[in-house]
Simulated scan of single mutants.
Amino acid sequence: MEERHRLKVLDGLRAIAILLVMGYHYFVRWTPPVAPDNFYPYGGFGAHFWLFEYGDLGVQIFFVISGFVISMTLFRCRTIGHFFWKRFARLFPTMLICSVLSFFILHLLPQNIFIPQVRDFIPSLTFSDPIIWSKIFDVPFKAVDGAYWSLFVEVKFYFWISVIYFLVGSRLFFRSVASAFGGLVIFYVLARALDFHHLWAIDFIFVIGALPWFVAGIGFYALYADASSRMAWVLLVESVVAIAVLRLGTHIGTIAPYLALAFSFFVFLAMMKRPAWVAWLGYPPLAAIGVASYSLYLLHQYIGVAILDIVRNAFGPESPLLSVLLAPTLVGVLILISLAIYHYWEAPAKDFLLGLRLTRPAILRGSGASERSDNAP
C-alpha cells in the first residue's frame, strides 16, 4: 500500500509474524524431532520455548493480514486485470531478486544441505506449486527456498477471492464469501466423513488448510469498512468454527492455533475500537521490519540455516552460547538487507510497474488523475 494509506499497526503485526517464523526456523524446524538431523550450532537449545515451538503460526497471522489487505485492494480495483497487475507489481520484483540472491548465495556458501537447481526458478517465479511442474516434466521440482510454499497458497487465494468479487460485485462480496466458505467447509467435512479418496485435491485447489485464516482477515476488513456489519461477524465466527472443525495444519490438539487467532482478533479489533491499546505496534523500528517483511521472509530460511550449519561444523554442536550471539546477529543482518531491498528495489520496482499501467489510460483518455488516486494498496 502507498505510505499514506498504510496502517502502521499492520506493519507491526507483520513484524511480529516474521520474527515468530524466523524463531521457528532458527531454533525448531531444523533439529529433531521436526527434522531428521540437527543443523544448529546450539543443538536443541530453545526448541521447546513456546514462542519458537509455535512460531510457524506466524504464517497464519500473515494469512489473516492478507485477507484484510486483499479485500481492501479488491474494493479499490476496477477490473480483475487491474487487481492482478497490482499483485504482480507487489510480489514479482521482490521474488525475482530474492530468489536470485538465495540461489547464488547458497551455491557460494561452503554448505551442501540446500542446493537449489536452475529449474527451481520456474515454480518460484510463477508462484505455482512445484508439484505441478514435477508432474508435467517427471523430474523433481522445488522452490528456491522452502518458505515460498505460503506464496503459492496466497496466489490460489487471490484467484478465488477475485473471481468471487468480480462476479458478484462489492455489494454482495462479503455475503458471497460467507456462503461459499460455509458451503465448502460443510462439503469438505462430509467428504472426509465419507472417506472420499481425493480429499487432497479439494485442499490443493481451494487451500482449505489456510482458508479460515484468510476469511478471518476478510471479516476484519468488513468490520473495518462498516462497524455495524453483521456479515463481518458471520465471517469471523465461520473462521473460528472452521479451524475447530477442520483441525488441519500444525499443532492439532493444542491451543496454539486458537491463541494465534485470538491475538489476531485482539490486534484488529483494538486497531478499530481501541487504537491506543495497539499503538506500540506502530513503533517505527518495529513497523520498519514489517514494511520489509516480504523480502525478509523470502531470504531468511535457507540462507540463515545454511550459515548456522557452517558455524556448527566449525565449532561443533551443542554450543548454547552461540544462540545468544549468532541467531540475533543473523536476524539483524537479514533485517538490514531486507530494508535495503525494500527501499532500493521493492518500492521503486512496484511504483515503476504500476506507472506502466497508469500511462496508457492517461494517454487514451487525456487524463490520468483518477487512475493515480487508485494506486493503493
Rank of each mutant, 00 (worst) to 15 (best):
E2M: 13
E2L: 14
H5F: 14
L10M: 04
D11G: 10
G12A: 08
L13P: 08
I16M: 12
I18K: 11
V21G: 10
G23R: 12
V28C: 14
R29Q: 13
T31I: 11
T31Y: 06
A35E: 05
G44C: 00
G55P: 08
G55C: 08
L57F: 02
L57W: 01
I70P: 00
M72K: 14
T73I: 10
R76E: 06
R87S: 04
A89V: 08
F92K: 01
M95F: 00
I105P: 01
L108Y: 13
N112A: 13
I115A: 03
P123S: 06
D129V: 06
P130Y: 05
I131K: 13
W133G: 05
F141H: 04
A143Y: 15
V144M: 13
S150F: 15
V163S: 14
V163N: 15
L167R: 07
S170M: 12
S179W: 10
G182L: 07
W200T: 05
I208E: 08
W213S: 15
I218M: 06
G219S: 06
Y221M: 00
A227V: 15
A232E: 00
A232F: 02
W233Q: 03
S239V: 13
L246V: 07
G253L: 07
A256Y: 13
F266S: 07
F266W: 07
M272T: 10
R274Q: 15
V278N: 07
G282W: 10
A287K: 08
I289M: 09
I289H: 08
L296W: 01
L296A: 10
L298A: 09
L299D: 07
G304W: 10
V305A: 04
I307E: 03
I310W: 09
F315A: 03
E318N: 14
P320N: 13
S323T: 07
L326S: 03
P328M: 03
G332P: 09
L339Y: 07
A347Q: 14
I363A: 15
I363R: 14
L364A: 02
P377K: 04
